[in-house]
């Protein structure tokens, strides 16, 4: 995984950082991609219960054997069920989501705007096959939404922006963003830096962010 030119955290380190902020006993839904890696980094002494919207609470890791093709996650990959797991149908699964029973959701992003708008389902390209899955239900129904994403696109374009140019998944839904460079809170005043990755400074992150970045709260008096 180690790329010599990589600056900041690896995908695994980003997932590990997210897991540190998940309270013990949380019911958590993990999106596809880097969010899936969070499950491998549960901090010592904590227990999370993972929900997958296709009907399983208590999702465990990928099976060591071939597994069961009818025991899969939302990304349609084979998983296991932990002791104490339960299966349920789709309407009940989204009762858990829409009814506010899932505590926290970790999602990937195409773009996040400074007001918390999230775009993560479509680039809106003409002719593309639109596919939404459960993303809109998750952001509308789950109280705390964490986004974990690379800070910029492969081409270096900012993913944290003033306003999303891609179609929205939900307006004003993101609470906190974890990137390879920083942890950033979405506040009523916009993006506020919460933490810098090792070897990265404020200016470096600001240059790669498409909106104004407010300095860390405890630094702000010193800066002023």
């Amino acid at each position: 995984m180690t790329v010599p030119s990589a600056i900041g955290l690896s995908r695994d380190e980003m997932a590990e950082r997210v897991a540190l902020d998940i309270p013990d006993g949380s019911y958590v839904n993990l999106g596809i991609g880097i969010p899936e890696l969070v499950a491998a980094h549960v901090p010592e002494g904590r227990e999370f219960i993972y929900h997958t919207e296709n009907g399983l609470l208590g999702m465990g890791p990928a099976p060591e054997d071939a597994g069961d093709p009818e025991l899969i996650n939302a990304g349609k990959r084979r998983v296991t069920a932990v002791a104490g797991a339960s299966f349920f149908h789709h309407a009940d699964s989204f009762v858990m989501i829409r009814g506010g029973h899932i505590d926290l959701c970790v999602l990937g992003a195409l773009q996040v705007a400074q007001n918390g708008d999230l775009a993560n389902w479509s680039t809106g390209e003409p002719g593309a096959i639109p596919a939404v899955g459960g993303a809109m239900d998750l952001v509308a129904g789950v109280e705390t939404i964490f986004v974990v994403t690379q800070h910029t696109t492969r081409n270096g374009e900012p993913k944290l922006v003033e306003s999303c140019t891609y179609p929205l998944t939900g307006p004003g839904v993101v609470d906190r963003i974890y990137t390879n460079l920083a942890v950033i809170d979405v506040t009523p005043d916009g993006f506020r830096l919460a933490e810098l990755s090792p070897g990265v400074d404020f200016e470096y992150v600001q240059e790669r962010t498409g909106a104004q970045l407010l300095p860390m709260s405890r630094m702000s008096s010193a800066v002023v």
Binding site: E53, H89, H90, A91, S93, F94, I97, R98, G127, I129, P130, A131, V132, G133, G134, A135, M136, D137, G141
Partner: peptide, 22 residues
Amino acid sequence: FPELYQSGRTALDLVPQGTLAE
């Protein structure tokens, strides 16, 4: 499906997953 959709031979009504279930 993508081929038939793009050639206009199959229509698509895209529904969020939880909304579809409900």
